[in-house]
Design a protein around this nucleic acid. Structure first.
Length: 191
DNA sequence: ACCGGGATGTTCT
DNA sequence: GAACATCCCGGTG
């Protein structure tokens, strides 16, 4: 079943581990979430919203359950799920998926991925594989009008998720706000 | 396996 | 003008 608004309306550091093993759907493609990071606005120098709202980060401050998609390094898109309550800046970055359905479409969009485990094993890889870009910024996962949604297929999050510092940051690099499915072979780096 | 560098352009100082 | 929540390729061991 599709996740409801209330699922997202919590602290991103609570939502993040709870998102592990949920299913992201975008069009014909599906993937199981195996790696995430939390970004908590005012408390978090690593967050895009740390210095207040800008045109880019407006969606992060809005209602929970929407997608915040941003462009980085001149060529990549990354997707977050907005959390907390409206007016707060909080989100969870989706960092890796295990491909489930639509693998042919993913392989077409990621011709450089040699193995299926490389299709979605990174934040910009998974957006490319699923065809997520600026058109999906602000998409509501709860009403799913854009064709993007989040499902609970009955698979519980890991009882003891792996945890580490976040990847690729300079500010806020010491905060242990990355969670992953231990032992999973589809992570952005070995757990 | 590990490491170094290039691609590419938006955002904010 | 610098930084950037990245990825890929080619070098070396």
């Amino acid at each position: 079943m599709r996740l409801e608004r209330g699922f997202y309306a919590r602290d991103p550091r609570v939502v993040a581990p709870d998102l592990l093993n949920k299913v992201l759907v975008a069009g014909e493609c599906r993937g199981r979430i195996v790696e995430v990071e939390a970004y908590a606005g005012a408390d978090d120098p690593g967050s895009h919203g740390f210095r207040g709202m800008t045109p880019r980060t407006e969606v992060m401050f809005g209602p929970p359950g929407r997608l915040y998609v941003y462009f980085t390094y001149g060529m990549h898109w990354c997707a977050n799920v907005v959390c907390g309550v409206e007016g707060e800046c909080a989100a969870v970055l989706l960092r890796a998926l295990t491909p489930m359905d639509g693998l042919d479409a993913m392989r077409e969009r990621r011709p450089k991925a040699h193995r299926d485990r490389d299709l979605c094993s990174g934040p910009a890889k998974l957006t490319a594989a699923l065809g997520i870009d600026s058109a999906a910024n602000g998409a509501d996962l709860v009403t799913a009008g854009s064709g993007i949604e989040m499902l609970d297929d009955g698979t519980a999050p890991p009882a003891e998720p792996g945890r580490s510092v976040r990847i690729g940051l300079s500010a806020g690099a010491d905060l242990p706000w990355r969670w992953y499915v231990p032992g999973c072979s589809d992570l952005s780096r070995p757990g």
